[in-house]
Amino acid sequence: MGGCKLAHVNQFKLQQGYSTNFFKLSCFSFLRLNQINVMKLIQVVRSVEKIEKILHSQNSKDWTSLEMSSPLLAGQILERIATEFNQLQFHAVQSKGMPLLDKVRPRISGITSTLQQSLEGLLIQGLQTSNVDIVRHCLRTYATIDKTRDAEALVGQVLVKPYMDMVIVEQFVKSTPNGLQILYTKLLQFVPHHCKLLREVTGMVISR
């Protein structure tokens, strides 16, 4: 009988010890998880502050002047911002669902808007002036922030659409002998004759 009681006591102590250890382990895991989440948020804030510091070093007027006077430098700055922006997005995704992240989101949105507008303006300038270095920086930056489709759409708007609007004229096809053949020939000339800059930047080899 005494042995049975002793066994129950030992079993109770064992269970109590297990519960205590489990509680300690749970607390440690909880604290560790919170620590990781806090570190992620710190990384988000640091990235935001770093990008804002770069952007604020050039106010809107100075940035416009920089794009005009030294577009290559502007492209290099945007590429630097894009690299940091990539890190920012990564840490923001990792911190998804955390209430404190909502307080930083307006600043992230502001950075996103500024970066996209500056990139768009600089790429248009590079295309219109046939500046290989500017276009290369811009396309590389678009790739860094995973927005290559935006670059494609902009090229379509700046290069492709104006040419197609000029070439594809129904009246010309109807009133000119072999008008359709001439139209077709002009369309085939678009890439080799009007996309030399993009071919050079992207390393494309297209037969003439």
Score class of each variant (00 low, 15 high):
2 G>T: 09
4 C>D: 12
4 C>M: 06
4 C>Q: 15
5 K>N: 12
6 L>D: 14
7 A>H: 03
8 H>Y: 13
10 N>K: 13
11 Q>T: 14
13 K>R: 14
13 K>M: 04
17 G>L: 11
19 S>W: 09
22 F>C: 07
23 F>E: 11
23 F>S: 15
25 L>K: 14
26 S>V: 11
27 C>F: 03
27 C>N: 11
27 C>M: 13
30 F>N: 13
30 F>I: 09
31 L>V: 08
36 I>P: 00
37 N>V: 04
38 V>R: 13
39 M>L: 13
39 M>C: 06
41 L>A: 12
41 L>M: 14
42 I>W: 00
45 V>L: 10
46 R>E: 14
46 R>F: 12
47 S>H: 13
51 I>C: 10
53 K>A: 12
60 S>F: 06
61 K>S: 13
61 K>T: 15
64 T>Q: 14
64 T>K: 15
64 T>W: 03
65 S>F: 08
68 M>G: 00
73 L>G: 01
73 L>Q: 12
75 G>C: 00
76 Q>G: 05
77 I>R: 04
77 I>C: 03
78 L>E: 05
81 I>F: 06
81 I>Q: 01
81 I>M: 02
83 T>F: 05
85 F>W: 08
86 N>P: 00
87 Q>F: 03
87 Q>T: 11
94 Q>G: 00
95 S>E: 04
98 M>V: 07
98 M>H: 13
99 P>N: 04
100 L>V: 13
100 L>Y: 09
108 I>H: 02
108 I>Y: 03
109 S>V: 10
112 T>Y: 11
113 S>H: 14
115 L>N: 06
115 L>I: 11
116 Q>D: 10
116 Q>C: 09
118 S>N: 15
120 E>M: 07
122 L>F: 03
126 G>H: 00
128 Q>Y: 07
129 T>Y: 07
132 V>E: 11
133 D>L: 13
137 H>L: 08
138 C>K: 01
138 C>G: 04
140 R>V: 08
141 T>Q: 08
142 Y>L: 04
142 Y>E: 04
143 A>G: 03
145 I>P: 00
150 D>I: 06
152 E>D: 10
155 V>I: 15
156 G>N: 10
156 G>P: 01
156 G>F: 02
157 Q>W: 03
158 V>Y: 07
160 V>A: 10
160 V>C: 03
163 Y>W: 08
164 M>T: 15
164 M>R: 14
167 V>E: 01
168 I>G: 01
168 I>L: 11
171 Q>G: 02
171 Q>A: 14
174 K>M: 11
175 S>C: 05
175 S>A: 15
175 S>V: 13
176 T>F: 01
176 T>I: 08
178 N>G: 02
180 L>S: 13
181 Q>I: 09
181 Q>H: 05
183 L>A: 10
186 K>F: 01
190 F>R: 01
190 F>M: 15
192 P>M: 12
197 L>A: 02
198 L>H: 02
199 R>C: 10
201 V>Y: 06
204 M>S: 04
204 M>W: 09
207 S>C: 05
208 R>T: 08
